[in-house]
Structures are given as structure tokens and as C-alpha cells.
Simulated scan of single mutants.
Amino acid sequence: MEIRHTTNPTDFKEYKTERLRSDFLIDSLFVKGEINLTYSHYDRVVAGGAIPTTEALKLEDKETLKTEYFLERREVGIINIGAEGTVLVDGEAYTLNKRDCLYVGLGNKEVLFESSNASDPAKFYIVSTPAHKQYPTKKAPIDDAEPNRLGSDSESNKRTIYKYIHADGIQSCQLMMGMTLLEPNNMWNTMPAHLHDRRMEIYLYFDMDEDARVFHFMGQPDETRHIVVKNEQAVLSPPWSIHSGVGTSNYTFIWAMAGENYTFTDMDQVKMDELK
């Protein structure tokens, strides 16, 4: 498991492109036949990807977590962004189609990932946070999720938001997770920008063409920077940072949050004239 340490906004102002990318960009989530995980010291979130082919992949890393099994002190949210696959939780199978979500709570000892077709595998995106209480394992198919349609073509941000793991949906200790789909010819997300200093966030960008890019903006409102992101890459966003982006075409992204406050609407809005 790769380890990412935290930084403070004063030091962040001096970072050049490569330092920004090495600290905040997760660029190799999905590799066929592998499970890849990154441990962030921002709220001790683990983010990763799994592409099982002919063999099942097990969610584990005893050396990093120093526990007997992965979910001994954690919970996890899983969204499939590939073809059909199955997650086995202590022997119980949950089939996930593209954009379906599964929450697995504290105390489940074995989590396995399988693809229905090795030549057209599933791609499981994984976000895990520390947990203090056991909540039941629950699946949320995309077809059952309530769409929240926002934005407009004139603002280039016409989009549909699906909330999966949150206070009014699948219950968890602190993990919140959902997905935003931008309509064709719409490229902006989360602008005007906001902060939520009580929790961090991770963005996974996907459903992008090979040559498409998203310019992900981060930093304090008066000291913004950007990271150029391609398909199936993720960005860690510190609590003190904005998290916004614009693409060369439309795209989809999964947002996941963790921290002290479990309220989805806990946002400190940033006025446009504060951005620099």
C-alpha cells in the first residue's frame, strides 16, 4: 500500500507541478489482475482499485494497517465502474453492474472481488475509512438511486448527482460517497467552489476518452493550483482546499468524503471574487 502524508497550506503554496502530482494525484488505481491501495493521512482514508480477471482479489494489507483483517477497524464503500462483477463479503455474494454501489461495514472478515467475464472485467473503486460501529452491508444499484439534476447548459455544468452512502441513504460511521454525471457539452464541476474544513474529499474521474483531460483546481481560495487528470485517476483534496474542475469534454466523477462532520450540506461557500 502506498502511503501519502499530509501537508499544510503554507507549504503547499511553494509546490511545483511534480510535487503536487506526487502528493495528491493517485495515477495507477486500475491494473488488470491487481488490487492497488493508497493510504492517506487525511482522515486516514484508503482509496484503491481492483480489476479481478481469472482470480479473485482479496481486500487486505495487514502490514500497513496492523490488524488481523482489513475491516477490523474500518468500513468500506465500493462502486463498480466496469463490467459486471461480484463482491463476496464473508461468503455472501453481491453482484454489481456498472455504477452500482456496495457498503461493507466494520467487522466483516473477508472481502473478495471477482469479475463475471475475465476478458471484460469489473473495475471496483474502493474507499475505506476508520469506523467505530457496525452498520449492515447494503447494496445500492444505480437504477434504484434517486437522481438529483442540477446546473444548466448556459453554465456548462448540467449534471446528475447520485448519493449512495450518506445520512439519508446507506448508513455509515463517517464515509460519504456518491457520483456525479455531467451531460454532453458540460464540463464544469463544483463551481462556484466551496470548502469543508471538517472533512477531506477524494475525486475519481472516469468515463473519459483517452485524450480527454480534467483540470482539477485545488488550494486555498486565494492561492489556487491545478492538476491535470486523465481517465480513471483520483485526486486527494485536503480539508482546507477547494475541489473543482473543468474538462476538455464531459465526464463522470465519484466523490467520497470522510472526517468529523457527517452532514452533506456542511459547506463553506467561496465567492467568485475570492478566487485567485
Rank of each mutant, 00 (worst) to 15 (best):
I170F: 06
E92T: 11
Q269K: 08
E68N: 14
R74T: 03
I142P: 04
D207G: 12
A50R: 03
A47K: 00
Q269V: 10
E84S: 14
S152H: 05
Y42M: 03
T160N: 13
L37N: 00
S241Y: 08
A122S: 15
S172R: 08
N261A: 04
V246F: 04
G82V: 10
Y103N: 01
S116C: 09
D209R: 13
G85W: 03
T54F: 14
G107A: 01
T17I: 08
R19F: 01
D268K: 11
D273T: 13
K271D: 14
V214K: 02
Y94L: 09
D168Y: 08
L175S: 09
K66T: 06
R73M: 09
Y42E: 02
A140R: 11
M1H: 08
S249Y: 00
I202V: 13
T6C: 12
L175A: 07
P238F: 12
T64A: 06
K230W: 02
T10I: 15
R149P: 09
I3P: 00
I170R: 06
I81F: 05
T86L: 06
N261S: 10
S154G: 08
S154D: 12
V228T: 12
H243A: 11
T190N: 14
N231Y: 06
T86K: 10
Y205G: 03
I3V: 15
S244R: 02
V89I: 12
G259F: 01
S154T: 11
T38M: 03
E2P: 00
D90S: 06
A145C: 15
Y262R: 03
M208D: 04
T64F: 05
N97K: 15
E114H: 10
P141H: 07
G169N: 10
V89P: 02
F217Y: 10
V45P: 00
N148K: 13
V111I: 14
N231D: 15
Q134S: 13
Q134I: 00
E75G: 04
